[in-house]
Amino acid sequence: MIRTEQLTKAFGGVRAVDGLNLDIAAGEFFAFLGPNGAGKTTTIKLLTGLLKPTSGRALICGHDIQQAPMEARKQIAYVPDLPFLYDKLAPLEFMHFIGQLYGMDRAIVERASAELFDVFDLNGTREKLIETLSHGTRQRLVIASALLHNPKVIIIDEPMVGLDPRSARVVKDVLKERSRNGATVFLSTHILHVAEELADRIGILNHGKLIAVGTMDELRAASGVVGALEDAFLSLTREEEEAPVEPASE
């Protein structure tokens, strides 16, 4: 469902993403980890078509995001780390607006919104203006609205920031359930235990390069560390830090 082929993005003289090859299957929960500045958000922007790759390509459900952006984006739900909302709308109005943008039938929007509001505990706020909502409530609303059109690919950047434990649990459960039902989840996070708990496979990016990818056991084997993901992550990224940095050729 998500495939990248030698995906590269250079900023000035530096490769933020360097020859990334990924192949993530339908129904797979993929966690994307890396230190600050590793290129995770740039990768996500390349996957969603917000940035143009310097070379290589990204495919969503078989559609090249650059060549067939409309087909690809219809299948995507994207939740950025700093999401956008219209402050002067109420949550239910926002859901209707999103439904219209995706060409959904009003009755379906009503039903799906009601279900999502139940799941994300948003019923108490459906008539309030978004500008009055707390950060956690806004974050839940953003995720709910992203799932409204039943996307096949969910790309989500740091979804747990600012969520209370109950809300975080709900988000994790919903994402896992969507993955079990066939959606591909691509989750970028710094919270390692979330990745450890939810992901089928984990990819670790450092200096724009995918330095490790696999299941928890495969990562442990690659790092030579027995224990939690944190130890494997620190071991793998430390090794990479010690390697010399190669500047881009352009």
Binding site: G12, G13, L51
Partner: peptide, 21 residues
């Protein structure tokens, strides 16, 4: 759009290598 969101720092006539952009 893509260029605008992909640019590193600019110096007249000098390519800048800056790890953190």
């Amino acid at each position: 759009w893509s260029r605008n969101h992909s640019q590193g720092p600019f110096r007249f006539g000098v390519t800048v290598l800056d790890r953190e952009f």
